[in-house]
Nucleic acid binder design. Structure first.
Lengths: 339, 339
DNA sequence: GCTTGGCACTCGACGTCTCGGAGTGCCAGG
DNA sequence: CCTGGCACTCCGAGACGTCGAGTGCCAAGC
C-alpha cells in the first residue's frame, strides 16, 4: 500500500526531473501529479526512498534527484513503454526507405536516431564475421598488378591491390577468379577463410600469384578494422548538457571519436529485440560513467549483426528513448532483410 | 619608422593574445617583448591601430584585442612561416604511411590534422569529377540481377545493384563487360559519361540490359552524393572555447554534421600549394562567422582533387596552423601519388 | 499506525555594494 | 617624437543581506 505509493512517488520524481532538469520538491510533486496525499506524506516517502538509495539531495533543503539506482528501478519496473506516434513511425519508414547502399543506411540511421531521441546516436556497421561472401572479383590493373574485390552479403565491399612478382596471363587470371568464387561464394566469412586455406594448400604446383591473392583475401576477411566501423551523429546534442561543461563534455567528445571505445560501449549489447539500458557507472567505460547508454542489436532475420543505440545523460526520457531505439532497429533490420 | 614599430606592436599583441587568451595591455607588452620604448609610447601606437580598425577594446580601460582586420594584416604581412619540427614531420610521415585504402588515408589525415593543430579538422574526399575510371566490373548476382562496380583512380569504389527485366546470358554479360571497359577505362569521368552515352545510343538492336547498366553507371558517376563526402575530426577541441558556450559551440557542432555546409566552407578553396585563410566573417557561412578557416587543396601531381583544412577560433596560432595544414596536404598528396 | 498541518530551520540564488587593480587617455616636459 | 606622471574608468571579486523553496520533525487527527 505505502510501498505502492512510494514507487509512484519515485516515478513522478523521475518524470518531473527529466522534464524540468531541476530537483523536485514535495509540493510541486503533489500538484503536478494527482497524488491524493499531502506534501508532508510525500516528504516522508522521499526520505525513505533516499534512505534506500533511490534519491539524493544536491544539498540540504533542495529538492530530490534520482540516483542511478533510482533510474534503474524506474526502467526495470516503472517505465511504461511509450509507443511512438504514427507520424513518427511513418517518418522513420520514409526516411530510411530512400537509402541506396549500406553506407547510406547507416548514416541515415544515425541521423534519424539522433533526431528522434535528441541524443548522440551510435550505429555500428554490420560485423563482417557473420556475413557471407557474395562475390570475389579479381581485375588486372597491369599485367603484374591485381585489384581484388570482396563483396559481402551485407553490401560491404572491400578492395585491395596486389603486386605480383611476375606477370599473370589472362587465362590464368580467369581460372584463378573462377576457382576463388567456386570455393568461397555463399560461404560465411569463417568458412570462407578455411576454404581459401584449403585452396592455397591444394595448389600444385605452388603458384605465387594464387598465394598472394589468397593472402590478401584472408587479410581482408579477418581485418579487424572493418569490424570496428561505427558512425556517430548528433554530437551537437551534447551542448544541451547545460551545466558542467568543459569538465563533462570534452572527454565525451573525445571518446566519441575513439571508435574502439565506442565499440566497447556497444559491444556487450543484446540480441535483437531486447533493448539494453546501461545507467551511469554500470557501464565498463570511465568516460561514460555519468551517461546512460541505450542499445539494441539489429540485422536481417532477427540475427543481430551489429548494435545501434544512443548515449545521453542519465537524466533522459527512458521510455521514449527505448521505444525510438527499438523502432529504428526494427526498420533497419527490415531494410537489410530486403536487400 | 613609427609605422614599422606599430606593426611590431600589432604582431606582439596578436602573439600575446593567442597565447594568453586575454586582452593585452601596454605594460605587459613592453615587458614580454623586447620593445625598447615605454608603455606610453605603445599606448599611442595602440590608439592609432585601434583608430585604423586593427584592434578593439572589450571595454574601456581593458587591454586590446585584435579585430578580424588585425588578424588579416597579421596573416598577410606579419606571420613568419613557422616550419614544423623534424619530429613533427616524421610523425606526419609515419602516421600516414600505414594507410591501406582511401578511407583510411582520409580518416588518418583528419586525426592527424586535428592533433597537430588542436583544432577541428575537415578533409574532403577526392572529388569524383577529376578522377579517371580505372575499371568497370559487372557481376551476375542472379540471372536477372547484376552488381555493377565502378573503380576510380583515386581508389574510390562505387557499387550498385541493377534488376533486369529479363535474364541475361553469361556471354552477353561478358560482351557487355568488355564493351564497357573498352569505352571508359582510363577516361576522365566527364569523358566517360559521354562515352557511355555514345555506347548506349549505338546499341542496335536496342538492348534493355545494356541501357540499364549504362544508366546506373552514369548515375554513379554524376552522383553528387559521392562528391559530398567529408570527414570531420577533433570536434572535442571545440570544448576549449572556454567562454561563451551553449551560444557558440552548439550551432558549430550542428554545422559540422551538415556535410553540405562543410563543403561550402571548403569549396571555394585554393589550388594545391597555397594555403587559404578565411578570418571571421570573411567566409560565406553565418555559423562560422566567428571562426577562422585554414584550407588548402591536395591531390596527386599538384592537381587539387579536393580540399582539406581546419576550423578554429579567430584567435589561433596562424603560422603554426598554416604550416601544419600545408605539410599534411603535401604528404597526403604524395601518398595519393604513389597509389 | 499512517496521514496531515504547522513550524522552525537551512541553504542556495540573487541583487547590491564596496574596493582594488589593471589599464587607459592626456598632458607637459625632455 | 618619446616619456613619466596623473586622474579616470571599469571590470571582477568578495562581503552582505534578503528571499524563497524546501526540508525535518512533532503533535494532532482519522
Amino acid at each position: 500500500m505505502q510501498e505502492e505509493r512510494r514507487l509512484a512517488v519515485l516515478r513522478a520524481i523521475v518524470q518531473d526531473y527529466v522534464a524540468t532538469e531541476e530537483p523536485v520538491g514535495s509540493k510541486a510533486l503533489v500538484e503536478r501529479h494527482g497524488l491524493n496525499v499531502s506534501p508532508a506524506t510525500v516528504r516522508n516517502d522521499m526520505a525513505a526512498l533516499e534512505e534506500e538509495g533511490y534519491l539524493t539531495q544536491p544539498h540540504t533543503s533542495a529538492g530530490r534527484v534520482p540516483t542511478d539506482k533510482g533510474y534503474r528501478l524506474f526502467v526495470d519496473r516503472l517505465g511504461a513503454v511509450k509507443p511512438l506516434s504514427v507520424a513518427e513511425k511513418r517518418a522513420i519508414a520514409s526516411f530510411l526507405d530512400g537509402a541506396v547502399d549500406l553506407d547510406d543506411v547507416v548514416s541515415r540511421s544515425v541521423r534519424l536516431l539522433s533526431q528522434l531521441t535528441r541524443q548522440v546516436a551510435v550505429v555500428q556497421y554490420p560485423v563482417l564475421s557473420r556475413s557471407t561472401v557474395r562475390h570475389v572479383e579479381v581485375v588486372a590493373l597491369a599485367p603484374d598488378r591485381l585489384l581484388v574485390i570482396l563483396i559481402l552479403s551485407t553490401g560491404r565491399v572491400e578492395q585491395r591491390v596486389v603486386d605480383l612478382d611476375a606477370d599473370l596471363p589472362d587465362d590464368d587470371l580467369a581460372r584463378l577468379r573462377s576457382r576463388l568464387n567456386l570455393s568461397v561464394t555463399g560461404e560465411v566469412i569463417g568458412a570462407a577463410v578455411t576454404a581459401l586455406g584449403d585452396l592455397a594448400a591444394a595448389d600444385e604446383p605452388h603458384d605465387a600469384a594464387t598465394a598472394a591473392v589468397v593472402q590478401v583475401l584472408v587479410d581482408a576477411m579477418s581485418d579487424h578494422r572493418s569490424d570496428e566501423r561505427v558512425a556517430v551523429g548528433g554530437a551537437a546534442n551534447l551542448a544541451r548538457y547545460g551545466d558542467s561543461f568543459d569538465s563533462a563534455v570534452r572527454p565525451l567528445l573525445e571518446a566519441l571519436e575513439e571508435h574502439v571505445v565506442l565499440l566497447q560501449l556497444l559491444g556487450e549489447a543484446s540480441a535483437s529485440g531486447t533493448v539494453t539500458v546501461r545507467i551511469g557507472a554500470e557501464g565498463p567505460i570511465e568516460e561514460f560513467a555519468s551517461t546512460s547508454v541505450v542499445t539494441t542489436g539489429y540485422g536481417p532475420h532477427d540475427d543481430a549483426l551489429a548494435t545501434l543505440g544512443i548515449v545521453g545523460p542519465t537524466r533522459m526520457d527512458y521510455p521514449g528513448t527505448m521505444a525510438a531505439v527499438r523502432a529504428v532497429s526494427r526498420y533497419v533490420s527490415r531494410i537489410l532483410d530486403e536487400s
